[in-house]
Design a protein around this nucleic acid. Structure first.
Lengths: 233, 233
DNA sequence: ATTATAAGCGAACAGGTGTTCGATGTCAAG
DNA sequence: CTTGACATCGAACACCTGTTCGCTTATAAT
């Protein structure tokens, strides 16, 4: 088979057929192709379709109206199909298979409160999203955000520098929740939260470490930790 | 519009059109429909298509070959479309969007070597799989397996009881890899691996802890740690 | 300059395909 | 039994659509 590239006209024909099928749910006729790519004669359209078929881009059925179909080679050439598959895949994955994109909003460091801004993260940068299977998450999956740990200040939470923490925006806590708290106005920490009489007990995840007891007014809950992800490779 | 149900013949016409389009990537002709559902006259097929159009199941284009398309009502009626979307969604999600199912093979405890069996895990229980986005993983995603940590023996690796460790089957290590090693014949541990002169340095993930130095013959690498997942909610 | 190949063209044609017509049959309602 | 609505039918027709023909032009190879 010739290695000569397709002519410009032949490329236009393939693209037109693709777009026509997207719009009409059926292939075009010889005359429709000619009209679209500027060929006035049905025999020239026929000639070019025959060339495309010989080169493996199309299958044709003789003496059948709209008897044109694409081969894999044509869909590879068009390239739009891969993009379309990805678009469909993303939409479908998001809604059917439960792959959730969680916005990665920045870093979590000990010396700053978490700032997740207002609203519903609708304007975050899509490239800074963490993809997580919803099967790995319990309950509601709205109001989620991710932060990357910067520094070694979370070691008592068994969370290391570079780890990603997936959180749900939440300003109250129940016993046993792991939460991010802004503590005494100067530190963010991740700990298990318990009401303990008049005070609050903040229990490190590391079982060899002791809890701390604080006054309620010294604690501001900034979010509930849903998951921790560590990439080691 | 009549609430009378579609006739049997009309239902058969809708199904045939659907199946024909799946197979041929184009709608059928009036005569093809007649042939398939046992109507010998093109005018009877035309009559039934007109009825289906009046009831909102089809759109037709006059004097255009194969000028038939489905409405949402028709696709609802057919029911197969929802199923098809799900089939496609699953296939696409698995292969394009990179949601990977990693077999959860059991527990990792300090006092036992990792047993991942032979072969390629093809016979593992699908319900015991961990779904992970391939975007979260670097490099090859074959030979992966997951183990759940049982006990507090991995704390020096910043890995807690109940955490899930995603690993790749691998018996050698490069400098800086986090690996599971069966150490001196009596302990599994997760550590960063370095060649250090004649010996091997195993560095805990917890930066406040000191490394250990061991003879190569006391170390059996059982897998490379790709990711750690912790569900806290 | 010549020749071979590729591409383009309008026209005619074959046959594929949708539409219309007049007739007949079936069934429910009155 | 009669009537009206619905459904079916074969045939004819209109027109859509693909194929072939003979010719011309453009381009590449010799």
């Amino acid at each position: 088979m010739s290695k000569k590239p397709l002519s410009k006209r032949q490329q236009n024909i393939l693209r037109f057929i693709y777009e026509y099928r997207e719009e009409h749910d059926r292939p075009p006729t010889i005359r429709e192709i000619g009209g679209a790519v500027g060929i006035s004669s049905t025999s020239v359209v026929n000639y070019n379709l025959t060339r495309l078929e010989e080169r493996g881009y199309l299958n044709r059925e003789a003496e059948v109206s709209r008897g044109i179909s694409f081969t894999d080679k044509a869909t590879d050439f068009l390239g739009v199909v891969a993009e379309k598959v990805n678009q469909v895949a993303t939409a479908v994955a998001d809604s059917v298979t439960g792959l959730i994109k969680v916005p990665l909003l920045g870093d979590i460091v000990a010396g700053e409160p978490i700032e997740v801004g207002s609203g519903d993260f609708a304007v975050y940068d899509e490239d800074d999203a963490i993809e997580v299977s919803s099967a790995m998450l319990k309950g509601r999956v709205d109001d989620l955000f991710a932060l990357r740990v910067n520094g070694e200040s979370m070691i008592d939470a068994m969370v290391n520098d570079g780890d990603i923490v997936i959180m749900r925006k939440q300003e109250t806590a129940n016993n046993g929740d792991m939460v991010a708290v802004w503590l005494a106005g100067d530190t963010t920490t991740l700990k298990y939260f318990y009401y303990d009489g008049d005070r609050i007990r903040l229990q490190p995840a590391n079982p060899t470490m002791k809890p701390i007891y604080v006054e309620p007014e010294d604690v501001r809950v900034q979010g509930k930790v849903m998951m921790v992800l560590r990439q080691t490779a």
